[in-house]
Amino acid sequence: MKNSRNANVTVLRLFAEQLAKLILPESLYKRVSEAMMSNAITFERLRLPELSAKKRSVFIRHLDCGSCNGCEIELNALSNPVYDIERFGIKFESSPRHADILVMTGPFTRNLEEAARLTFEAMPEPRRVIALGDCAADGGVFKDSYAIRARPGEIDEAIREKGVYIPGCPPTPEEILKGILDVLAKN
């Protein structure tokens, strides 16, 4: 009972904080939140004027081809309020059928070849592919391994013609956003 009351109070406090931020002028809001002793989370949202200028609708699908999960961490970070990728009209989607852009991470392992190819084929034209991270570019530290193979020609072609390589190990969320912008500019 006590737990549930505490939780409700906290939820209401979070709502109130947001409302106060919206309604009150900034100086007053600061004073109020200090008076309330609330530890409201403050942060600076990343500004990317070149990306916010145009309104667009882009669906992205992620495809893991054997990454170390570092790139996944940064891709997931794009959805947090600091980067807030959705404000640019870009959204991560759950199905390759819905996707406009495929983001491939990792050096392309042999075991994933078939699954990766099927995912690529399930994607409607035009197939724009981003190779994310150093190991997606040339294999990175895994370059010479027996378990890594060259990407199938069609995927490689899609990257070269309609996609980009985003270098970095892993690239920062900001670099990924800029890379996505490059792909959109290319087409």
Partner: peptide, 15 residues
């Protein structure tokens, strides 16, 4: 599992 096998232990040996 094993889809992401990258031959890391062999890489340690050889590269």
């Amino acid at each position: 599992l094993g889809y992401k096998h990258r031959g890391i232990e062999k890489l340690f040996q050889t590269q």
